Amino acid sequence: MAEVTTGIEVRYFAAAADAAGREKDTIDLPEGADLGTLRAVLVDRYGADMERVLSVAAFLLEPGDGGRGELTRDLGRPAGSRVDVLPPFAGG
Score class of each variant (00 low, 15 high):
residue 82 R to N: 04
residue 85 V to G: 02
residue 53 V to N: 08
residue 3 E to Y: 15
residue 5 T to P: 01
residue 82 R to H: 08
residue 68 R to D: 14
residue 12 Y to P: 13
residue 71 L to D: 09
residue 47 G to K: 11
residue 37 T to A: 14
residue 78 P to I: 02
residue 27 I to N: 03
residue 45 R to D: 06
residue 27 I to S: 02
residue 51 E to P: 11
residue 27 I to R: 00
residue 37 T to K: 04
residue 61 L to C: 04
residue 15 A to T: 10
residue 42 L to K: 10
residue 46 Y to D: 01
residue 77 R to D: 02
residue 42 L to F: 01
residue 8 I to D: 00
residue 38 L to E: 02
residue 46 Y to A: 08
residue 19 A to I: 07
residue 25 D to V: 03
residue 17 A to H: 09
residue 79 A to G: 01
residue 46 Y to W: 04
residue 61 L to T: 09
residue 6 T to H: 12
residue 51 E to V: 06
residue 41 V to D: 07
residue 5 T to S: 09
residue 26 T to Y: 01
residue 43 V to N: 02
residue 52 R to F: 12
residue 53 V to S: 09
residue 52 R to L: 14
residue 76 G to C: 06
residue 52 R to A: 14
residue 49 D to I: 04
residue 2 A to V: 15
residue 37 T to Q: 11
residue 51 E to L: 06
residue 74 D to A: 14
residue 84 D to S: 06
residue 82 R to P: 00
residue 67 G to A: 13
residue 9 E to D: 05
residue 42 L to I: 10
residue 69 G to L: 00
residue 73 R to L: 08
residue 70 E to S: 08
residue 3 E to P: 06
residue 61 L to Q: 03
residue 16 A to K: 08
residue 26 T to M: 06
residue 84 D to M: 06
residue 2 A to S: 15
residue 5 T to K: 11
residue 81 S to H: 09
residue 29 L to N: 00
residue 16 A to M: 11
residue 75 L to G: 04
residue 68 R to K: 13
residue 23 E to L: 08
residue 44 D to G: 10
residue 4 V to A: 14
residue 76 G to F: 07
residue 40 A to C: 07
residue 84 D to G: 12
residue 47 G to S: 03
residue 91 G to A: 09
residue 55 S to M: 12
residue 75 L to F: 04
residue 71 L to T: 14
residue 10 V to A: 05
residue 33 A to D: 08
residue 86 L to G: 03
residue 38 L to V: 08
residue 10 V to W: 06
residue 23 E to F: 10
residue 75 L to Y: 07
residue 13 F to A: 09
residue 80 G to W: 00
residue 47 G to L: 11
residue 57 A to H: 06
residue 23 E to W: 09
residue 34 D to G: 13
residue 84 D to V: 13
residue 25 D to G: 00
residue 34 D to N: 15
residue 76 G to H: 13
residue 55 S to P: 15
residue 41 V to A: 06
residue 11 R to E: 12
residue 67 G to V: 12
residue 53 V to P: 01
residue 10 V to G: 06
residue 10 V to C: 03
residue 18 D to Y: 01
residue 56 V to L: 15
residue 67 G to L: 14
residue 20 A to R: 05
residue 72 T to H: 05
residue 22 R to Y: 04
residue 90 A to Q: 11
residue 69 G to E: 02
residue 7 G to D: 09
residue 1 M to P: 12
residue 61 L to D: 08
residue 40 A to L: 08
residue 70 E to C: 02
residue 60 L to F: 02
residue 44 D to K: 14
residue 23 E to M: 09
